[in-house]
Amino acid sequence: MLIMQETTPPEQSLYARLVVRDEAIDAIDQFLEYRPTMKFTINGKHVWARKFIRKFSSPSEVGTSRVFP
């Protein structure tokens, strides 16, 4: 699922979020070449990509792998 920032014309989105299943995480790591951030060029525009690593706010959330509650 790809979620883009909502904007009104002529503005452009500044960010997007890509949500993948747990079994696809290895593919994302390979795509980013195991780096924390990586720069791409899409349609002539520079785009930075990184893997989101959730910071846990409570001990009950430790060990969960879900992106959204």
Score class of each variant (00 low, 15 high):
Met1Cys: 05
Leu2Asp: 01
Leu2Gly: 05
Ile3Leu: 06
Ile3Trp: 02
Met4Ile: 03
Met4Phe: 14
Met4Tyr: 03
Gln5Asp: 09
Gln5Pro: 02
Gln5Ile: 02
Gln5Trp: 04
Glu6Gly: 05
Glu6Asn: 05
Glu6Ile: 05
Glu6Gln: 12
Thr7Trp: 01
Thr7Ala: 09
Thr7Asp: 06
Pro9Asp: 05
Pro9Trp: 07
Pro10Asp: 03
Glu11Asp: 15
Gln12Ser: 08
Ser13Met: 09
Leu14Glu: 12
Leu14His: 11
Leu14Ile: 09
Tyr15Trp: 09
Tyr15Ser: 11
Tyr15Val: 10
Arg17Ala: 09
Arg17His: 13
Arg17Trp: 06
Leu18Asn: 13
Val20Trp: 01
Arg21Met: 11
Asp22Ala: 14
Asp22Gly: 11
Glu23Gly: 04
Ala24Asn: 15
Ala24Leu: 10
Ala24Lys: 14
Ile25Gln: 08
Ile25Leu: 08
Asp26Lys: 10
Ala27Phe: 07
Ala27Thr: 10
Ile28Glu: 04
Ile28Val: 15
Gln30Val: 00
Phe31His: 02
Phe31Gln: 02
Leu32Phe: 00
Glu33Lys: 11
Glu33Asn: 10
Tyr34Trp: 11
Arg35Glu: 09
Arg35Met: 01
Arg35Lys: 03
Pro36Thr: 05
Thr37Asp: 06
Thr37Leu: 09
Met38Lys: 15
Lys39Pro: 00
Lys39Phe: 08
Phe40Trp: 06
Thr41Ile: 07
Ile42Trp: 03
Lys45Leu: 04
His46Asp: 14
Trp48Ser: 14
Trp48Met: 14
Ala49Asp: 01
Arg50Cys: 13
Lys51Trp: 01
Lys51Asp: 02
Lys51Gln: 11
Phe52Glu: 06
Phe52Asn: 02
Phe52Leu: 05
Phe52Cys: 07
Phe52Gly: 02
Ile53Trp: 12
Ile53Asn: 14
Arg54Phe: 03
Arg54Asp: 03
Lys55Ser: 12
Lys55Arg: 12
Phe56Trp: 10
Phe56Ser: 07
Phe56Pro: 04
Ser57Lys: 13
Ser57Arg: 10
Ser58His: 13
Ser58Thr: 13
Pro59Glu: 01
Pro59Trp: 08
Ser60Gln: 12
Ser60Ile: 03
Ser60Ala: 12
Glu61Pro: 01
Gly63Ala: 00
Gly63Thr: 01
Ser65Met: 12
Ser65Asn: 10
Arg66Met: 00
Arg66Cys: 02
Arg66Asp: 04
Arg66Phe: 05
Val67His: 00
Val67Pro: 00
Val67Gly: 04
Phe68Ile: 06
Pro69Ser: 12
Pro69Glu: 09
